[in-house]
């Protein structure tokens, strides 16, 4: 992949890959690192990336692999603790920037709080469920694509998503009831 191809790749998939990195790392600094490492690894692997080989899922697979390896090297607990705080700040800051102008300040606060609650609930899920949720809802991959990325049978992906939804429904019961009012 030459410089021009890399630039095209970043233009086309950068936002999605960055969003995925942000979700799985829960930390802006880690997300930045993972995002850069993902593209650097893709360049190093030298595979031709074009529309015929589903670049988005290819890049996501690389990001997942790097993140898993990094996590395997066991986390610095304090950094995890710090991350948790950062996440909240990050969510708020970003949601403020991207929030709908039409909302009243009260509605905006409710919206940020809702998003923060949902994201935190997802972050609490076990890794195997959390990853499926991000691939499905953030990256909007189909069950088939997730199965391919995670090297799992489709049934397992479905089962994980089903279980994740069930756990989230329990965790977000209050939120779900409130938003229904």
């Amino acid at each position: 992949m030459n410089k021009e191809q890399l630039e095209q790749c970043i233009d086309a998939y950068g936002t999605d890959i960055y969003a995925f990195c942000s979700r799985i790392t829960c930390n802006r600094q880690e997300a930045d690192d993972l995002y850069q490492d993902t593209f650097l690894k893709a360049v190093e692997l030298g595979e031709k990336i074009d529309d015929t080989n589903n670049p988005k899922s290819y890049l996501v697979s690389i990001a997942m692999r790097i993140w898993k390896n990094k996590k395997r090297k066991f986390a610095w607990r304090n950094r995890i603790a710090e991350s948790m705080t950062l996440v909240e700040e990050t969510i708020r800051e970003e949601d403020i920037n991207h929030s709908e102008v039409m909302c009243s300040p009260e509605e905006q606060i409710l919206d940020w709080e809702l998003k923060a609650q949902v994201r935190q609930a997802v972050e609490k899920l076990d890794e195997k469920y959390r990853m499926s949720v991000y691939l499905y809802y953030t990256m909007e991959f189909s069950i088939e694509q997730i199965a391919e990325i995670m090297k799992l049978p489709k049934g397992t992906v479905k089962s994980r998503l089903h279980k994740a939804r069930k756990l989230l429904k329990q965790e977000l019961e209050v939120v779900l009831n409130e938003t229904g009012k």
């Binding site: 970043i10 950068g14 936002t15 999605d16 960055y18 969003a19 995925f20 942000s22 979700r23 997300a31 930045d32 995002y35 850069q36 990050t90 970003e94 949601d95 991207h98 809702l114 998003k115 949902v118 994201r119 997802v122 949720v133 991000y134 809802y137 953030t138 939804r165 989230l168 429904k169 977000l172 939120v175 779900l176 938003t179 229904g180």
Partner: peptide
């Protein structure tokens, strides 16, 4: 609630962060 959950998850988890140019 099943649909509501789906909707909320999509909203809350959809990409809204962008890598900056520097990155």
């Amino acid at each position: 609630q099943e649909n509501k959950l789906d909707e909320i998850l999509k909203q809350a988890l959809s990409p809204d962060e962008k890598p900056n140019d520097w990155l």
